[in-house]
Design a protein around this nucleic acid. Structure first.
Length: 257
DNA sequence: ATGGCGCAGCCACTGCGA
């Protein structure tokens, strides 16, 4: 079982790019974020032709999440109770014995912006919303763009950016609280010391200078963690330029026994 | 002098992303 998460920064602008990536990596399920597309406007047919089902919680212009899967999936829930005003940022599906969530945590804009407080509220609601999935005991994976640098290892400049956006104590504590429900950061668990970023700014040659952040995570319940054999950032597809430009995020891929 | 990106949209500038 191969499960990935990929913030695509517009499914319209990235369609052929994502299809090429699916062909190359052949994941069984993919959590997508930042579709910038409505549920109705999602390109279902292109993915069906590529062998993938899609369950979508879309939104015009902003946000939007989905889960792609080779096997048919069943919708568990679209949206996060208590956080509807944040936009379409969570979808949970069931694929066989697996429960998979795709989440796009609000950016927060700046420390003094009202959206920063809403980001923390979203993370608190997320903790409450996912707890039943973790407690069920069946393998559960929550993949997404968490928009938080959980530890110093996850930032290219942890000292210079300490207490700056993505690096603050309340944001980090909110990730701790998610993990306290019984989830594990699957990549960090297998690679405790790795500095492996998943996002690089489009500007200023950040990718080539490796000035990135690790903000795209795959969190797994105990039974998912026990089966995970390898988790890696697909940097090649952050660098690649085909007929379409890459997203500013790289896919993160996990393999399970 | 201080940018060098890239999306969407009532579109040629603005808002947003991280």
């Amino acid at each position: 079982m191969r499960i990935a998460t990929f913030n695509v920064n517009s499914i319209h602008a990235r369609l052929s790019f994502v299809l090429g990536w699916l062909e190359a990596r052949k994941p069984d399920a993919v959590c997508l974020q930042e579709l910038k597309q409505t549920t109705e406007g999602f390109p279902y047919e292109a993915f069906r032709d590529a062998g993938y089902h899609a369950l979508v919680h879309g939104q015009k212009s902003w946000n939007g999440v989905a889960v792609l899967s080779r096997a048919p999936a069943e919708l568990v829930e679209a949206g996060l109770p208590g956080a509807e005003s944040a936009g379409s940022r969570l979808i949970t599906v069931r694929i066989g014995e697996w429960t998979i969530g795709s989440v796009y945590v609000p950016n927060g804009k700046s420390l003094v912006h009202a959206d920063f407080e809403r980001k923390l509220e979203f993370l608190a609601a997320l903790r409450a919303g996912i707890a039943p999935m973790v407690e069920s005991g069946t393998p559960y994976v929550l993949g997404g763009d968490f928009n938080v640098v959980h530890t110093d290892l996850d930032s290219f400049a942890p000292d210079a950016l300490r207490d700056a956006m993505f690096h603050t104590s309340p944001e980090r504590a909110a990730i701790d609280a998610l993990l306290e429900t019984g989830l594990t950061d699957l990549q960090r668990n297998l690679e405790p010391e790795a500095r492996s970023f998943s996002w690089w700014d489009y500007r200023g040659g950040s990718f080539h200078k490796n000035e990135g952040l690790r903000i795209d995570l795959l969190l797994g319940s105990a039974s998912a963690k026990a089966r995970a054999t390898k988790v890696w950032v697909d940097r090649e597809w952050r660098k690649k330029r085909d007929e379409q430009t890459p997203s500013d995020h790289a896919p993160v891929i996990a393999d399970f026994e």
